[in-house]
């Protein structure tokens, strides 16, 4: 092989190597994104700072919930996903404030803000070590983004490199799919009650 050809091959290899490195270099947003902690529905999922378990998942076309001016009914062109869960802080008092639903297409949906005064919603109560507390999560989702979705829970959506629970959700049982769900105020232990129609 002549010297010129050798140089050309070496140059091509170097360009290919640089291109490969360029493609495989993570973006800054990926480097500082939350650290994923995998979990599955049905088993308690644990990070270094909190433990969480999914109790029940419901689906409805219509949601009725208490608000500031009285009870209101919320309709949607998609579906309401209502998740009953329980969580506990591990070593120090914390507040869980970030919940997202990642659909099968990778699209992320924040928890709905239409029900801001509903009792027991994630973020409404601080978690204390040794005291498990029920948590209610409500998402408004397109129908095709529900099955095969993942629930993402973190202390804050803005804290880089903090842990984020990524709970793989199982398909919703037919018995838990309803035309309408009513959320009512509960007691001290369970701050809400669900009624189905």
């Amino acid at each position: 092989m002549s010297g010129g050809l050798k140089n050309a091959v070496a140059l091509c290899l170097a360009i290919a190597a640089l291109y490969g490195m360029r493609l495989s270099t993570p973006l800054y947003s990926e480097i500082v994104s939350p650290v994923a902690v995998p979990g599955v529905q049905g088993k308690p999922a644990k990070t270094a700072r909190f433990v969480m378990g999914i109790v029940k998942v419901y689906l409805a076309q219509e949601l009725t919930a208490p608000g500031l001016g009285g009870t209101r009914t919320y309709t949607t062109s998609g579906r309401w996903l209502v998740i009953e869960a329980a969580a506990k802080a591990s070593n120090e008092s914390i507040a869980l404030t970030s919940a997202q639903w990642r659909g099968p297409d990778g699209i992320r949906y924040a928890m709905t803000r239409r029900l801001s005064t509903t009792p027991g919603l994630l973020g409404s109560e601080r978690l204390e070590p040794g005291i498990p507390r029920p948590i209610l999560l409500v998402f408004e989702l397109p129908e095709n983004q529900i099955e095969g979705g993942t629930l993402l829970i973190a202390e804050s959506a803005l804290a880089p490199l903090s842990e984020q629970l990524q709970i793989t959700m199982t398909p919703i049982e037919a018995a838990n799919i309803h035309p309408s769900i009513t959320i009512e105020r509960g007691g001290h232990i369970l701050p809400w009650k669900l009624e189905f129609q």
Partner: peptide, 15 residues
Amino acid sequence: IWLIDKDGRRWEPAF
């Protein structure tokens, strides 16, 4: 102010 127990768990005061 924090409350600490023998296991090192820490509680913040209630609001």
